[in-house]
């Protein structure tokens, strides 16, 4: 985009949004949010970057390839689902473990949380991947011969 203002705002805005998305993800079990919403917000942040500064720049900023991100996300969710099978329980049975966290006190940590994290990454990866693919195609459409 040609707007200088927007180009300069985005690097400040996006990291903030990413942090927010992670917050939405983590509190999702107890308040509105969760993997889907968190992932979508994170993807929106990246979409901002992409719109404002171009696909290539957004890719560089992301560092990780969206394809890898989504594969990793699905794999994480899958692994969290498979874990109980090794404990002899049906797949996707939640395994909970109360963990002492310094500031927050006792927190239940379990495979559903891991599952949600997997969903988060999958959603981020998928959305950005789709966006990037279409953007690139569109860029080529615009520049290349019809």
């Amino acid at each position: 985009m040609n707007s200088y203002l927007i180009r300069m705002t985005v690097p400040w805005l996006c990291p903030f949004l990413l942090v927010m998305s992670i917050w939405i993800l983590l509190r999702g079990h107890n308040a509105p949010g969760g993997g889907f919403i968190g992932g979508l917000v994170a993807a929106a942040a990246i979409a901002f970057w992409c719109f404002a500064r171009g696909v290539e720049d957004a890719k560089r900023w992301m560092r990780v390839s969206p394809l890898h991100l989504m594969i990793a996300g699905v794999s994480t969710a899958l692994i969290s689902g498979l874990m109980p099978m090794f404990a002899g329980k049906p797949m996707l049975t939640a395994l909970w473990h109360k963990v002492e966290v310094p500031l927050l006190g006792k927190l239940p940590l379990g495979t559903p949380i891991l599952f949600d994290i997997g969903v988060f990454f999958a959603v981020v990866g998928v959305t950005t991947s789709i966006l990037f693919s279409l953007e690139e195609f569109e860029l080529w459409n615009r520049s290349g011969p019809s």
Partner: peptide, 13 residues
């Protein structure tokens, strides 16, 4: 399910 957000617990558990 250790979650207050029932919708989210349905989704992930």
């Amino acid at each position: 399910g250790y979650g207050q957000n029932v919708v989210n617990v349905i989704l992930v558990d």
